[in-house]
Computed example of a mutant assay.
Amino acid sequence: MSKKCQIDFVSEVVNLTAPDFIFNDFYYFDKIPSTQDFAFEIIKRKKKINPSVVICNTQSRGKGRKGYLWSSPKGGIWVSIFLESTLKLENLFLFVMIAAICICETIEKETNLKPKVKWPNDVFVNGKKVAGVLLDVETCIDNGKNKIIIGLGINTNNDLRLTKSKLKNKHHNHYPMTTLKDEANKPDISNAHFLSRLLNNLSHHLSKIESDTFVNENILNNYIKRIMESRSHIVYSFNVDEKAFEGEIVDVDIDGSLLVRDIHQQKIIKIHSANSVNLR
Rank of each mutant, 00 (worst) to 15 (best):
G153S: 09
G151A: 06
I22H: 04
G75S: 09
N126W: 04
I254Y: 14
E217N: 15
S257Q: 10
E248W: 03
D262K: 10
M177I: 15
I141H: 12
F82L: 06
T86Q: 10
G247E: 02
L195C: 08
I224V: 15
P33F: 05
D255A: 09
D37A: 13
F40W: 09
E183K: 13
R61V: 04
S52R: 08
S34A: 05
K46G: 01
K168R: 15
W78C: 05
G256K: 12
F29R: 11
V53Q: 02
N275G: 00
K129Y: 07
V130T: 13
T106E: 00
N221K: 15
L220W: 11
V53T: 04
K74P: 00
V96N: 15
L92Y: 05
D142M: 11
S273Q: 08
K46F: 06
I42P: 05
I55P: 01
D251W: 09
N126M: 02
L279K: 15
N191P: 01
H204R: 14
I254A: 11
N222M: 04
K48W: 02
H205A: 01
D241T: 10
N185R: 15
H204S: 04
Y27G: 02
I49Q: 03
I77M: 10
L259T: 14
I189V: 10
V260D: 04
D142T: 14
K74Q: 11
K114H: 09
A244S: 12
N173Y: 10
Y236P: 05
S165C: 08
S52H: 06
F214E: 09
L134P: 03
K116W: 00
K170Y: 10
R65M: 01
D253G: 02
R231F: 00
K208L: 15
L152F: 08
